[in-house]
C-alpha cells in the first residue's frame, strides 16, 4: 500500500510564556485521513499545542508545515479556512442557525446556499433547525451547530479541542459518533485533544501523549494505549 501524503507536520514547535514552556519542541506528522489524538493530564499543554496549529497563537520557535508549505507564508484567513477548529464550548453568533453556517464562507465573499446548509444540518442530525434562532439551543445542539459551521468552510484539517467534554453523557456519545462518521465520510485529517483515553482509543488512529508540554509517547493507538 502506498504511503499517504503528509498533510500536517510540526517542526520543533514551541511556545513559551514568561520563560515557561507550554509547548516544548513538538515534532509530529499527521498523514491524510489520520486522526491524531492528543492526550495528557490537565495543564500538560494540549490546548496550547492545538492553538498553534491554526496559528491562533504564535509559536515562539519552530513552525508548522501544511502540505509541505510553511504556514507562516499562508495568509492567516486562508490557513484557518483550511484548518478548521471546534472548541470545547460552542460560541455561536447571535442570529439564526443558517446565519451561523454562512459565517465562514461569507468572510471570503462566498454564499452558502440553503441546500448546502441543509445538507450540513442533516449531517449533524439537526435537519429542522435551519431558521431557528440560536438563543435557546441546548449545549449538545450548539456543539453540533458549531461542528456544521466549521465544516461549511470545507476544511482539509479539523482541530478538535475536547469537543464532547462540556456535554452530558447522552449528547456526548451522540456527538462523538457523529464526529466519527463525519471524519470518515469526508476523509478529514484530524487532530483531536481529549483527556479521555477511551475516547482516543475509539476515535483515533494515532496517539500523542503530552506531559509538561513535551511528547512522552507517540505512535499508533495500539502502540501507545495497548502497550
Amino acid at each position: 500500500m502506498p504511503e499517504k501524503s503528509i498533510v500536517l507536520r510540526t517542526d520543533l514547535l514551541s511556545r513559551s510564556i514568561q520563560n515557561r514552556k507550554l509547548v516544548d519542541d513538538i515534532t509530529v506528522e499527521v498523514r491524510a485521513g489520520e486522526v491524531l489524538a492528543v492526550v495528557g493530564s490537565s495543564g500538560s499543554g494540549k490546548s496550547s499545542f492545538l492553538r498553534l496549529l491554526n496559528r491562533l497563537d504564535e509559536p515562539s520557535s519552530g513552525t508548522v508545515f501544511l502540505e509541505d508549505i510553511d504556514y507562516r507564508t499562508i495568509p492567516p484567513c486562508e490557513l484557518r479556512r483550511k484548518v478548521g477548529m471546534v472548541t470545547q464550548r460552542a460560541f455561536l453568533f447571535p442570529g439564526t442557525v443558517y446565519e451561523n453556517l454562512q459565517f465562514g464562507p461569507k468572510q471570503r465573499g462566498e454564499e452558502l446556499s440553503e441546500n448546502l446548509a441543509q445538507e450540513l444540518l442533516d449531517g449533524v442530525g439537526l435537519s429542522s433547525y435551519l431558521m431557528r434562532d440560536v438563543t435557546h439551543l441546548s449545549g449538545g445542539e450548539a456543539q453540533r451547530i458549531s461542528i456544521a459551521r466549521a465544516l461549511a468552510n470545507t476544511p482539509s484539517v479539523l482541530l478538535l479541542d475536547e469537543p464532547t467534554s462540556a456535554l452530558d453523557d447522552e449528547s456526548k456519545s451522540g456527538v462523538e459518533g457523529l464526529l466519527h462518521d463525519i471524519i470518515r465520510k469526508r476523509r478529514l485529517t484530524c487532530v483531536m485533544v481529549t483527556h479521555d483515553v477511551a475516547q482516543a482509543a475509539r476515535m483515533a488512529t494515532h496517539v500523542m501523549m503530552l506531559a509538561d508540554g513535551r511528547v512522552i509517547k507517540e505512535g499508533t493507538v495500539k502502540e501507545v494505549l495497548h502497550a
Binding site: L56, G84, R89, F91, F93, Q107, S146
Partner: peptide
C-alpha cells in the same frame, strides 16, 4: 474572547 477567536478560527479577518 471566545466569540472573537471563534470568528478568527473560521477565517474572519481581525477587523471582521
Amino acid at each position: 474572547v471566545g466569540e472573537i477567536e471563534t470568528a478568527l478560527a473560521l477565517g474572519a479577518s481581525s477587523k471582521q
